[in-house]
Design a protein around this nucleic acid. Sequence first.
DNA 1: CTTCGGTGCAATCCAACGGTTGCACAGAGC
DNA 2: GCTCTGTGCAACCGTTGGATTGCACCGAAG
Lengths: 115, 115
Amino acid sequence: MVSSGASAGSPVAAFAALADETRWTVLETLAQDDGAAGLTASVLADRLPVTRQAIAKHLAVLETAGLVESRTVGRERRYRALGAELTALGRRLERIGNAWEARLTRIARIAETLT
Amino acid sequence: MVSSGASAGSPVAAFAALADETRWTVLETLAQDDGAAGLTASVLADRLPVTRQAIAKHLAVLETAGLVESRTVGRERRYRALGAELTALGRRLERIGNAWEARLTRIARIAETLT
DNA sequence: CTTCGGTGCAATCCAACGGTTGCACAGAGC
DNA sequence: GCTCTGTGCAACCGTTGGATTGCACCGAAG
């Protein structure tokens, strides 16, 4: 499986998922309160000042972005934060930034040689 | 220097800046074609299928997020991509992801001990 | 001085997004 | 059986955001 993770294809979708304050709060709440069992949308809505449906939408976005995982227990759906995906995304950003910097310094060196 | 960089405060603003395809194209174009002189909004608009004003807005967003730097030459404004900021943001993401993972494994170990 | 190319500002348009409310459905517990 | 709680779907609303057009301004070149 490659296509659904945050480290796949264009990272823009993942960044869009991370570009919302409420979504970050959801992620952090999941990451902190996670007892490997996961939290339901209702529980999250109970702790955050937004409706359960809003939370559900955010969870859907996060799951599509691959930053969250869900498993259905009985009639309820528990969500877990996927820190590894976040890490992968971070490493990817780091690589891109380094590549740009490298190009800059290389050009600078060439310019220096020409002087 | 703390408030303007992409690595300051909440990273949400930086992610919002990175959550747009056109903005990424602008960034990549800057990073590739950069001859240390930088590119103007007009030049960018010439290469990308969007208006100069749209580019200007994107550049403003990117500069606010600290991902781009501008310097005024004559009557024109040249922009440079700041790869280092991107790298810093990436490292930050990496750290958060690792923290979440660490918490998970710690909880898992405790659960194992209880069994 | 006049002209031309690069910017900046403001108004406008439309799609996407976050959030809410309401309802309908499913499953565990009495 | 009935009830109560957790989900899911759909419609709706206000705001944000990407993009356009139009105009005014300023600086370098003729």
